[in-house]
């Protein structure tokens, strides 16, 4: 018989139905699985032990990304991230013009770098922000994504 049912997230059909297709996200069923940007930020929070100060900067920049997401195609917001040996969280994005980096330092300060490739028409940039300076996170995110 045809039927329609409102089910909970822990329903076996939901868990089995999704988990076999999305093996990379085992255990993360409360996340919005296909919203890549949200998932990435959730993963960063779970995977890293950011300091309280880093979390302040991180949260501001995350809000900037979410603002930008509402304006442009979310697929274009993709970036790589890593926690380096100095426990700095780094967002990196490479384009034909160069490499953009946002670096969240342990003390909460934020560095934005754009290192231009040799033949690029753009110049390299380095900006530095204290957490209290991150008032326009959307602009920082736009700059990070622009080159």
């Amino acid at each position: 018989m045809n039927n329609l049912e409102l089910v909970d997230i822990f329903n076996n059909e939901i868990v089995i139905g999704y988990s076999k297709d999305m093996k990379n996200l085992n255990g993360s069923i409360t996340l919005n699985l296909l919203n890549k940007l949200n998932t990435k930020f959730e993963m960063i929070l779970v995977f890293t032990n950011l300091t309280k100060e880093q979390k302040v900067s991180f949260n501001k920049i995350r809000n900037g990304f979410l603002e930008v997401q509402s304006q442009i195609d979310s697929d274009r917001l993709d970036f790589n991230w890593l926690l380096n040996e100095d426990k700095e969280l780094c967002f990196n994005k490479e384009s034909e013009n160069g490499v953009s980096s946002l670096i969240f330092n342990e003390d909460g300060t934020l560095s934005y770098w754009f290192i231009a490739f040799k033949n690029s028409i753009h110049k390299s940039i380095r900006n530095f922000y204290y957490p209290s300076d991150i008032n326009d996170s959307e602009k920082i995110v736009f700059n990070f994504l622009s080159y």
């Binding site: 045809n2 039927n3 329609l4 049912e5 409102l6 089910v7 997230i9 329903n11 949260n59």
Partner: peptide, 18 residues
């Protein structure tokens, strides 16, 4: 609190001839 969300999950079973 800087973001809120709701999620609804529906399962629809339709007979094979559909």
């Amino acid at each position: 609190i800087n973001k809120i969300s709701c999620r609804y999950l529906n399962i629809i079973n339709l007979l094979e001839d559909s």
